[in-house]
Design a protein around this nucleic acid. Sequence first.
DNA 1: TTGAGAACTGAACAATTGTATAGTTATACT
DNA 2: AGTATAACTATACAATTGTTCAGTTCTCAA
Lengths: 196, 196
Amino acid sequence: MRSAGGNDSIVQAALRLFGEHGIGATSLREVAKAAGVSPALVVHHFGGKEGLVAAVDETALRRFGGAAYGSEERPDPPDLLRQRAEQTARVMREHPEVCAYFGRALVEGTPGSARLFRLMIEGGRAEIDALAEKGALRKDADRLWATLQHFFLIWAPLSFMPLLEQEALGGSLLDDAILNRWVAANVKLLEQGLYR
Amino acid sequence: MRSAGGNDSIVQAALRLFGEHGIGATSLREVAKAAGVSPALVVHHFGGKEGLVAAVDETALRRFGGAAYGSEERPDPPDLLRQRAEQTARVMREHPEVCAYFGRALVEGTPGSARLFRLMIEGGRAEIDALAEKGALRKDADRLWATLQHFFLIWAPLSFMPLLEQEALGGSLLDDAILNRWVAANVKLLEQGLYR
DNA sequence: TTGAGAACTGAACAATTGTATAGTTATACT
DNA sequence: AGTATAACTATACAATTGTTCAGTTCTCAA
């Protein structure tokens, strides 16, 4: 076990700063200062910035991926979609810094983000296939792109978060009111489309 | 008018490199070398990196925004959606570097990308409102989020391009086959949803 | 042809980056 | 208490960054 003021606090500070300002735009020294620690210690623990990013990836994956994509019951449609959406929203509410981090990581291209991406794509694809077998999916649906569309609707807002909050939402994406509206819109779109 | 080997070639090189590797990750020296020019000249022309980014933003906005969001006829639904999608796809085919650049700029947060974002959101919103008046939109649709969903489905793939192409598509997003499949999936989703 | 102004370059600057080294302090086991 | 091991720091280094400055080359009208 690591002490609270050591290894973990560095990762915690890095996770927050990476999510706020981006990984490439955050220096080792900023992380060290935020963690109340010397830059050399960061190198000593993680071998360098690359290692630090790997550690942050690991932590973020464990904290989020475990909660969101762990093995759980798979309810029948039509509740499945709504339930999955609510579950994702709950994880986002509980781990906003992790969400911000992955929003950055996914577009900056860390190794961990590629793993997360594969995880989500595979998980999403499996769910889509299961739905198709039960006859809940449109028969002519493009399953690969259906998976990707799910992914975009959920994750793109996190990557565009600063732009989105300042230019369109006028508030934090992960605030309850906005988050709920977002989830509701997603469910509606996926279930019924936008036009008629 | 500028000479071909001067001002413009620098912006051209910057646009390409920014799109390929990101804005923050591309140095003035790399841009200068790619343009076959000394770093000092870049500063001389644009005042610094900030000015260069502004110039690239300007060029990209003119080249893309003009083509995609200019004043044009507004056909009636149900052809509108398909037609708009085809139009966007055409612009993407014709200006792949500009697309790559905006994919980066939108998540890195340049001033020009904020302008593009506002432009697209306002344009999209206007179109949604027009559709609603004609009764083509679902009555209970959340118009703000409907606009954003359009935006995500179109732009997120560009910001996730590297990840997407390597992990899910196995080819260039802007290649004809993949691009067409993408557009078709978007139209389907917006028109009819994914489930039933 | 000449001269003014623009385009352009080479070399150097200070600041910041990630990282290595040598040394100090704390922890914990015997 | 003593000692080995880990945690931690101060300092320095090389590389890269954006930027400046003094000077050169080009362009073109008078």
